[in-house]
Amino acid sequence: MAGMVWLFWKELVRFGKVAFQTVIAPVMTALLFLLVFSHVLEGRVNVYEGVSYTAFLVPGLIMMSVIQNGFANSSSSLIQSKITGNLFFVLITPISYVEFFIAYVAAAMVRGLAVGATILLFALLLVDISVHSYTLVLVFALLGSAILGALGIIAAIWADKYDQLAAFQNFVIMPLSFLSGVFYSIHSLPPFWQTLSRFNPFFYMIDGFRHGFFAISDVPVAVSLAICLTAFILLSAITLSILKIGYKLRV
């Protein structure tokens, strides 16, 4: 147990040391998106009755940042340790594969939440927006960052080189998060894309998260919650079984 807490703490110190890059930079990016899109599209696009486009955009941008940073934290830390070889000093300790999983995922959640909370703070100051249910917001942020933290572990174990991980990030994580309804409601899409969006798990994370703000969403919040929970359980099970057999880590 104590070993796990130290591994978790090490992960926090690691991203804390480069907070400019791991927290401040993604906050900046999200705020730039907010600035540009809200200025260009405010008043032209109306998604939900009584919700301004800028307000609509805020939860999507926050969740997209939570997702991307959750993934980035576990995947970049793990692949660096794997490629530089210092993971050796973690693998030879009594830390179990379950503890290893918890430490990496929990650290990914902390980073995701740190980025998300900072963007929210700015949004509350700059945009006319209020939060309907902080509980829902928190639950979806936790689930989203945990799911992506687990996915980051899988990607980092699978990838043998940095460019393979970058490919995973650019060709899987980025499209799924951009095509998940961050900038629009899926009801504004043609039927084909609407159907396709329903197969994107990120869509449910963002839709449920947005429900926490406006109490309106594209699909019922219970459905989003159920799908996110299922995704989390499924990905955790896959990650744990990969770690248990020691795939690519213990040959």
Binding site: M1, A2, G3, V5, W6, L7, W9, K10, F89, V90, T93, P94, I95
Partner: peptide, 8 residues
């Protein structure tokens, strides 16, 4: 950190 991983 290494000592911590061993629960110390």
């Amino acid at each position: 950190f290494q000592a911590g991983y061993f629960g110390l």
